[in-house]
Simulated scan of single mutants.
Amino acid sequence: MELKLELIVLPVSDVDRAKAFYEKAGFRLDLDVNANEDWRAVHLTPPGSECSIIFGTGLTTATPGSTQGLYLIVSDIEEARAELTGRGIDVSEVFHDANGVLYHGHDAGDVTHELPGQERLAGPHPDRATYCSYATFRDPDGNGWVLQEITERFPGR
């Protein structure tokens, strides 16, 4: 049996503002449907991804900005960061964990929340080890994204 993650619902407070942000970030607009004033769905897909996001009116009761830890996998972290910042997206500096631990904290404004066992250091991993270099950004509501550099997949992926 295959189970493919296809769609993630994001809670946003302003649909048009979120749509403009994700289009600016390079996401492809797949659908923008208004059934009535109480229901609207905007569906976008990150470049190269098989999984999409959807947000709108009447889609979720989750608090806007409450979704954290959405990973976008890139083959070159510095190139991806440069492209996003070139598009006007505020992306953190590239970083890695001193202990080689998978990054599982999140950014909230100027404060980075790290979990036990982590020590965030500036720059990509010194050996550019796969799965070990990161950068983060947030949408206008605070939904949190992590760019992760993967150059070689773990076996079985």
Rank of each mutant, 00 (worst) to 15 (best):
G123L: 14
R28Y: 08
A135R: 00
R138A: 07
T67M: 04
H125K: 00
A80T: 05
D97K: 00
V42R: 01
V33R: 11
F21V: 11
G69V: 04
F137M: 04
D127L: 05
E83P: 01
A122T: 13
A20I: 12
E83L: 05
D141K: 04
H125W: 00
V94G: 01
T45A: 15
I89A: 06
E114M: 05
G105H: 09
Y131R: 15
T112A: 15
L70G: 08
L121A: 15
S52T: 00
I53D: 04
G26Q: 13
E79H: 14
Q68Y: 12
C132K: 13
G123F: 09
N36T: 14
R28T: 11
I77W: 01
L44T: 00
L102C: 07
L121K: 15
Y103W: 07
R120K: 08
I89E: 10
L29E: 15
D38V: 13
G58C: 10
D38M: 13
R128F: 06
Y22N: 06
G65M: 05
R40W: 01
T45D: 14
A35S: 08
Q68L: 11
H96L: 05
T67Q: 05
G48Y: 12
G100R: 07
L29G: 07
N99I: 02
H43D: 09
V42K: 03
I54V: 05
L70W: 10
L121E: 15
H104S: 09
D141T: 04
N143C: 08
L70K: 09
I54A: 01
G105R: 04
S133F: 02
K24F: 10
D107N: 04
A108Q: 12
D141C: 03
R17A: 15
P124E: 08
S133Y: 02
W39P: 10
D110C: 08
A82I: 07
R87A: 06
R128E: 05
V111S: 10
H113F: 13
H104P: 05
L121S: 14
L29Q: 07
A82D: 09
V94M: 02
G100S: 07
D110Q: 11
G69C: 09
D90L: 14
P140K: 05
A41G: 13
Y22R: 05
F21H: 06
G109F: 02
F95S: 09
H113M: 13
T136C: 05
G48F: 14
G100I: 04
G109N: 04
V42T: 08
P116T: 08
D38S: 15
P124W: 00
F21G: 10
N34Y: 03
T112G: 08
F137C: 02
L44G: 00
P126M: 04
A108Y: 06
P126S: 06
V42W: 02
D97R: 00
H96P: 06
R120C: 01
D139E: 02
D90Y: 08
K24P: 14
L84V: 05
G117F: 00
D97W: 00
F21Y: 08
Y131V: 07
N143D: 11
H125I: 01
S133E: 07
R17F: 14
V101Q: 08
Y103S: 01
E83M: 06
Y134P: 02
H106T: 14
Y103G: 03
P140E: 09
A108G: 11
E78R: 03
W39N: 13
P47E: 06
D139G: 03
G100E: 07
A35W: 14
D32H: 03
T63A: 13
